[in-house]
Amino acid sequence: MGVLSSNREIAVSLSFILFGSVIFYSIYSIDVVEGINALYTSTYIIPNYVTAVLFDWRGFDTLGECFILINSVLVAGMVFGKGLFNRGFLKELYRDKKTCEDMDLGFTPIIKVLAIPMSIVLMLLGIVVILGGHITPGGGFQGGSLIAAAYVLAIISFGIRKCPINFSHKFLETLESFGALTFLILGLLGMAISGYYLFNVGEIYGMNPFPSPLSIAQNGSLNVGIIPYLNMAVGLKVLAGLSTITTLLISERIIFKNIKD
Protein backbone atom coordinates (compact mmCIF):
# COMPACT_ATOMS: atom_id res chain seq x y z
CA MET A 1 0.00 0.00 0.00
CA GLY A 2 2.95 2.29 -0.21
CA VAL A 3 2.66 5.09 2.27
CA LEU A 4 1.13 3.47 5.30
CA SER A 5 2.85 3.34 8.68
CA SER A 6 4.17 0.04 9.95
CA ASN A 7 1.37 -0.44 12.50
CA ARG A 8 -1.09 -0.17 9.74
CA GLU A 9 0.84 -2.59 7.59
CA ILE A 10 0.56 -5.16 10.37
CA ALA A 11 -3.16 -4.55 10.85
CA VAL A 12 -3.84 -4.77 7.18
CA SER A 13 -1.82 -7.95 6.77
CA LEU A 14 -3.65 -9.55 9.66
CA SER A 15 -7.06 -8.74 8.32
CA PHE A 16 -6.00 -9.81 4.85
CA ILE A 17 -4.87 -13.17 6.19
CA LEU A 18 -8.20 -13.60 7.96
CA PHE A 19 -10.22 -12.71 4.91
CA GLY A 20 -8.06 -14.82 2.64
CA SER A 21 -8.40 -17.85 4.85
CA VAL A 22 -12.15 -17.37 5.00
CA ILE A 23 -12.34 -17.26 1.20
CA PHE A 24 -10.09 -20.26 0.94
CA TYR A 25 -12.06 -22.21 3.48
CA SER A 26 -15.40 -21.41 1.83
CA ILE A 27 -14.19 -22.44 -1.60
CA TYR A 28 -12.50 -25.52 -0.20
CA SER A 29 -15.67 -26.69 1.50
CA ILE A 30 -17.89 -26.37 -1.56
CA ASP A 31 -20.17 -29.34 -1.92
CA VAL A 32 -22.05 -29.04 -5.19
CA VAL A 33 -25.79 -29.63 -5.03
CA GLU A 34 -27.26 -30.68 -8.34
CA GLY A 35 -30.43 -28.60 -8.02
CA ILE A 36 -31.63 -27.07 -11.23
CA ASN A 37 -28.85 -28.72 -13.26
CA ALA A 38 -30.91 -31.90 -13.19
CA LEU A 39 -33.41 -30.18 -15.44
CA TYR A 40 -30.83 -28.58 -17.72
CA THR A 41 -29.08 -31.87 -18.37
CA SER A 42 -32.22 -33.89 -19.02
CA THR A 43 -33.97 -31.54 -21.43
CA TYR A 44 -32.90 -31.57 -25.05
CA ILE A 45 -33.12 -28.30 -26.92
CA ILE A 46 -30.04 -28.17 -29.13
CA PRO A 47 -26.91 -30.32 -29.13
CA ASN A 48 -24.76 -27.66 -27.49
CA TYR A 49 -26.10 -27.46 -23.96
CA VAL A 50 -24.05 -24.44 -22.95
CA THR A 51 -25.54 -22.46 -25.81
CA ALA A 52 -28.96 -23.74 -24.79
CA VAL A 53 -28.47 -22.36 -21.29
CA LEU A 54 -27.05 -19.11 -22.62
CA PHE A 55 -29.71 -18.33 -25.18
CA ASP A 56 -32.76 -20.29 -24.19
CA TRP A 57 -32.97 -20.78 -20.44
CA ARG A 58 -31.09 -17.65 -19.48
CA GLY A 59 -31.32 -15.49 -22.59
CA PHE A 60 -31.94 -12.33 -20.63
CA ASP A 61 -28.59 -12.64 -18.87
CA THR A 62 -26.90 -12.78 -22.22
CA LEU A 63 -28.75 -9.65 -23.24
CA GLY A 64 -27.54 -7.88 -20.12
CA GLU A 65 -24.03 -9.05 -20.76
CA CYS A 66 -24.14 -7.68 -24.33
CA PHE A 67 -25.13 -4.37 -22.84
CA ILE A 68 -22.14 -4.39 -20.54
CA LEU A 69 -19.90 -4.61 -23.60
CA ILE A 70 -21.78 -1.83 -25.38
CA ASN A 71 -21.67 0.25 -22.26
CA SER A 72 -17.98 -0.29 -21.84
CA VAL A 73 -17.30 0.74 -25.45
CA LEU A 74 -19.32 3.87 -24.85
CA VAL A 75 -17.53 4.72 -21.63
CA ALA A 76 -14.10 3.94 -23.07
CA GLY A 77 -14.97 6.29 -25.93
CA MET A 78 -16.01 8.85 -23.36
CA VAL A 79 -12.68 8.56 -21.56
CA PHE A 80 -11.10 9.52 -24.88
CA GLY A 81 -13.27 12.57 -25.33
CA LYS A 82 -16.45 11.40 -27.03
CA GLY A 83 -19.51 13.30 -25.88
CA LEU A 84 -18.05 14.97 -22.79
CA PHE A 85 -19.60 18.08 -21.29
CA ASN A 86 -16.19 19.65 -20.85
CA ARG A 87 -13.05 18.70 -22.74
CA GLY A 88 -10.66 21.00 -20.91
CA PHE A 89 -8.67 18.26 -19.21
CA LEU A 90 -8.11 16.24 -22.38
CA LYS A 91 -7.29 19.35 -24.41
CA GLU A 92 -4.65 20.31 -21.92
CA LEU A 93 -3.17 16.81 -21.95
CA TYR A 94 -3.04 16.35 -25.69
CA ARG A 95 -2.08 19.89 -26.59
CA ASP A 96 1.13 19.18 -28.50
CA LYS A 97 0.60 17.50 -31.82
CA LYS A 98 3.99 15.80 -31.73
CA THR A 99 2.73 13.00 -29.57
CA CYS A 100 0.19 12.01 -32.16
CA GLU A 101 1.85 8.84 -33.33
CA ASP A 102 -0.03 5.70 -34.04
CA MET A 103 1.31 2.56 -32.57
CA ASP A 104 3.71 0.75 -34.89
CA LEU A 105 5.91 -1.62 -32.98
CA GLY A 106 8.24 -2.04 -35.96
CA PHE A 107 7.92 -5.76 -36.37
CA THR A 108 10.11 -7.57 -38.84
CA PRO A 109 8.82 -8.65 -42.28
CA ILE A 110 8.55 -12.24 -41.09
CA ILE A 111 5.78 -11.32 -38.69
CA LYS A 112 4.18 -8.95 -41.16
CA VAL A 113 4.08 -11.63 -43.84
CA LEU A 114 2.72 -14.28 -41.51
CA ALA A 115 0.20 -12.14 -39.66
CA ILE A 116 -2.19 -11.50 -42.52
CA PRO A 117 -2.78 -15.09 -43.65
CA MET A 118 -3.10 -16.14 -40.04
CA SER A 119 -5.61 -13.47 -39.23
CA ILE A 120 -7.62 -14.34 -42.33
CA VAL A 121 -7.69 -17.98 -41.30
CA LEU A 122 -8.66 -16.98 -37.77
CA MET A 123 -11.48 -14.82 -39.06
CA LEU A 124 -12.84 -17.65 -41.18
CA LEU A 125 -12.60 -19.98 -38.21
CA GLY A 126 -14.47 -17.40 -36.16
CA ILE A 127 -17.26 -17.27 -38.71
CA VAL A 128 -17.51 -21.06 -38.65
CA VAL A 129 -17.59 -21.07 -34.87
CA ILE A 130 -20.38 -18.50 -34.81
CA LEU A 131 -22.50 -20.25 -37.43
CA GLY A 132 -22.12 -23.68 -35.85
CA GLY A 133 -22.59 -22.42 -32.33
CA HIS A 134 -25.71 -24.44 -31.67
CA ILE A 135 -24.40 -27.84 -32.78
CA THR A 136 -20.65 -27.74 -32.12
CA PRO A 137 -18.53 -26.30 -29.33
CA GLY A 138 -18.56 -22.57 -29.77
CA GLY A 139 -21.04 -19.80 -30.20
CA GLY A 140 -21.38 -16.09 -30.61
CA PHE A 141 -18.92 -15.00 -27.94
CA GLN A 142 -16.22 -17.42 -28.86
CA GLY A 143 -16.43 -16.73 -32.58
CA GLY A 144 -16.74 -13.01 -32.08
CA SER A 145 -13.69 -12.85 -29.90
CA LEU A 146 -11.76 -15.02 -32.40
CA ILE A 147 -12.48 -12.52 -35.16
CA ALA A 148 -11.61 -9.63 -32.88
CA ALA A 149 -8.35 -11.38 -31.96
CA ALA A 150 -7.53 -11.77 -35.64
CA TYR A 151 -8.13 -8.09 -36.18
CA VAL A 152 -5.99 -7.18 -33.18
CA LEU A 153 -3.19 -9.40 -34.49
CA ALA A 154 -3.28 -7.60 -37.82
CA ILE A 155 -3.28 -4.14 -36.27
CA ILE A 156 -0.49 -4.90 -33.85
CA SER A 157 1.83 -6.25 -36.49
CA PHE A 158 1.27 -3.44 -39.00
CA GLY A 159 0.14 -0.41 -37.01
CA ILE A 160 -3.31 0.95 -37.50
CA ARG A 161 -2.53 3.23 -40.46
CA LYS A 162 -0.88 0.71 -42.74
CA CYS A 163 -2.91 -2.29 -41.76
CA PRO A 164 -4.39 -4.07 -44.80
CA ILE A 165 -7.41 -5.20 -42.78
CA ASN A 166 -8.89 -1.94 -41.78
CA PHE A 167 -12.39 -1.50 -40.44
CA SER A 168 -13.39 2.09 -40.04
CA HIS A 169 -14.57 3.27 -36.66
CA LYS A 170 -18.00 4.17 -37.98
CA PHE A 171 -18.39 0.73 -39.57
CA LEU A 172 -17.62 -1.02 -36.30
CA GLU A 173 -20.06 1.20 -34.43
CA THR A 174 -22.78 0.41 -36.94
CA LEU A 175 -22.05 -3.30 -36.70
CA GLU A 176 -22.27 -3.20 -32.94
CA SER A 177 -25.53 -1.29 -32.82
CA PHE A 178 -26.94 -3.60 -35.47
CA GLY A 179 -26.00 -6.71 -33.50
CA ALA A 180 -27.49 -5.45 -30.26
CA LEU A 181 -30.66 -4.21 -31.92
CA THR A 182 -31.09 -7.58 -33.65
CA PHE A 183 -30.88 -9.32 -30.29
CA LEU A 184 -33.42 -6.99 -28.73
CA ILE A 185 -35.82 -7.24 -31.65
CA LEU A 186 -35.60 -11.04 -31.76
CA GLY A 187 -36.60 -10.93 -28.11
CA LEU A 188 -39.54 -8.72 -28.97
CA LEU A 189 -40.48 -11.19 -31.71
CA GLY A 190 -40.86 -13.86 -29.06
CA MET A 191 -43.01 -11.46 -27.09
CA ALA A 192 -45.23 -10.76 -30.09
CA ILE A 193 -45.75 -14.46 -30.74
CA SER A 194 -46.05 -15.94 -27.27
CA GLY A 195 -46.10 -13.09 -24.81
CA TYR A 196 -42.76 -14.07 -23.26
CA TYR A 197 -39.65 -12.02 -23.90
CA LEU A 198 -36.82 -13.96 -25.59
CA PHE A 199 -39.13 -16.89 -26.18
CA ASN A 200 -37.38 -19.44 -28.38
CA VAL A 201 -39.75 -19.19 -31.32
CA GLY A 202 -40.18 -22.59 -32.91
CA GLU A 203 -42.29 -21.57 -35.85
CA ILE A 204 -43.46 -18.36 -37.44
CA TYR A 205 -46.76 -18.86 -39.27
CA GLY A 206 -45.92 -22.50 -39.80
CA MET A 207 -42.39 -21.84 -41.02
CA ASN A 208 -39.30 -23.07 -39.27
CA PRO A 209 -37.10 -20.03 -38.63
CA PHE A 210 -33.87 -22.01 -39.08
CA PRO A 211 -34.29 -25.28 -40.97
CA SER A 212 -31.72 -27.79 -39.74
CA PRO A 213 -30.59 -31.17 -41.06
CA LEU A 214 -32.19 -34.30 -39.65
CA SER A 215 -28.91 -35.68 -38.41
CA ILE A 216 -28.77 -33.39 -35.37
CA ALA A 217 -32.22 -34.38 -34.26
CA GLN A 218 -32.98 -36.17 -31.04
CA ASN A 219 -36.38 -37.67 -30.30
CA GLY A 220 -37.66 -36.22 -33.57
CA SER A 221 -37.09 -32.66 -32.37
CA LEU A 222 -35.64 -30.72 -35.28
CA ASN A 223 -36.27 -27.29 -34.04
CA VAL A 224 -33.41 -25.04 -32.99
CA GLY A 225 -35.65 -21.98 -33.01
CA ILE A 226 -34.03 -18.56 -33.19
CA ILE A 227 -30.86 -19.56 -31.35
CA PRO A 228 -28.59 -19.40 -34.45
CA TYR A 229 -29.79 -15.87 -35.16
CA LEU A 230 -29.15 -14.84 -31.58
CA ASN A 231 -25.69 -16.37 -31.92
CA MET A 232 -25.01 -14.29 -35.00
CA ALA A 233 -26.24 -11.11 -33.33
CA VAL A 234 -24.01 -11.70 -30.34
CA GLY A 235 -21.10 -12.60 -32.59
CA LEU A 236 -21.40 -9.35 -34.52
CA LYS A 237 -21.66 -7.37 -31.33
CA VAL A 238 -18.71 -9.00 -29.63
CA LEU A 239 -16.42 -8.72 -32.62
CA ALA A 240 -17.33 -5.09 -33.14
CA GLY A 241 -17.13 -4.25 -29.46
CA LEU A 242 -13.73 -5.79 -28.82
CA SER A 243 -12.29 -4.36 -32.05
CA THR A 244 -13.57 -0.89 -31.17
CA ILE A 245 -12.00 -1.07 -27.74
CA THR A 246 -8.67 -2.07 -29.27
CA THR A 247 -8.83 0.71 -31.81
CA LEU A 248 -9.58 3.16 -29.05
CA LEU A 249 -6.71 2.01 -26.87
CA ILE A 250 -4.16 1.85 -29.65
CA SER A 251 -4.77 5.05 -31.52
CA GLU A 252 -4.50 8.61 -30.32
CA ARG A 253 -5.99 9.96 -33.50
CA ILE A 254 -9.48 9.38 -32.16
CA ILE A 255 -8.77 11.61 -29.18
CA PHE A 256 -7.51 14.38 -31.44
CA LYS A 257 -10.58 14.03 -33.59
CA ASN A 258 -12.83 14.14 -30.56
CA ILE A 259 -11.28 17.19 -28.94
CA LYS A 260 -10.85 19.18 -32.13
CA ASP A 261 -14.02 21.26 -31.97
Partner: peptide
Protein backbone atom coordinates in the same frame (compact mmCIF):
# COMPACT_ATOMS: atom_id res chain seq x y z
CA UNK B 1 -29.54 -13.50 -8.35
CA UNK B 2 -27.20 -13.85 -11.32
CA UNK B 3 -29.34 -11.57 -13.43
CA UNK B 4 -29.14 -9.11 -10.57
CA UNK B 5 -25.35 -9.34 -10.68
CA UNK B 6 -25.23 -8.68 -14.43
CA UNK B 7 -27.33 -5.55 -14.11
CA UNK B 8 -25.38 -4.49 -11.02
CA UNK B 9 -22.25 -4.43 -13.17
CA UNK B 10 -24.04 -2.44 -15.87
CA UNK B 11 -25.08 0.05 -13.21
CA UNK B 12 -21.46 0.30 -12.02
CA UNK B 13 -20.10 1.06 -15.48
CA UNK B 14 -22.95 3.47 -16.17
CA UNK B 15 -22.28 5.42 -13.02
CA UNK B 16 -18.59 5.65 -13.82
CA UNK B 17 -19.49 6.86 -17.31
CA UNK B 18 -21.85 9.49 -15.98
CA UNK B 19 -19.12 10.83 -13.73
CA UNK B 20 -16.60 10.87 -16.57
CA UNK B 21 -19.10 12.87 -18.63
CA UNK B 22 -18.28 16.00 -16.67
CA UNK B 23 -14.77 15.76 -18.12
CA UNK B 24 -12.62 17.25 -15.36
CA UNK B 25 -9.53 15.55 -14.02
CA UNK B 26 -11.12 15.00 -10.63
CA UNK B 27 -14.07 13.32 -12.26
CA UNK B 28 -11.74 10.95 -14.09
Amino acid sequence: IFNLYVFYEIATITQAGLVIASGTENAY
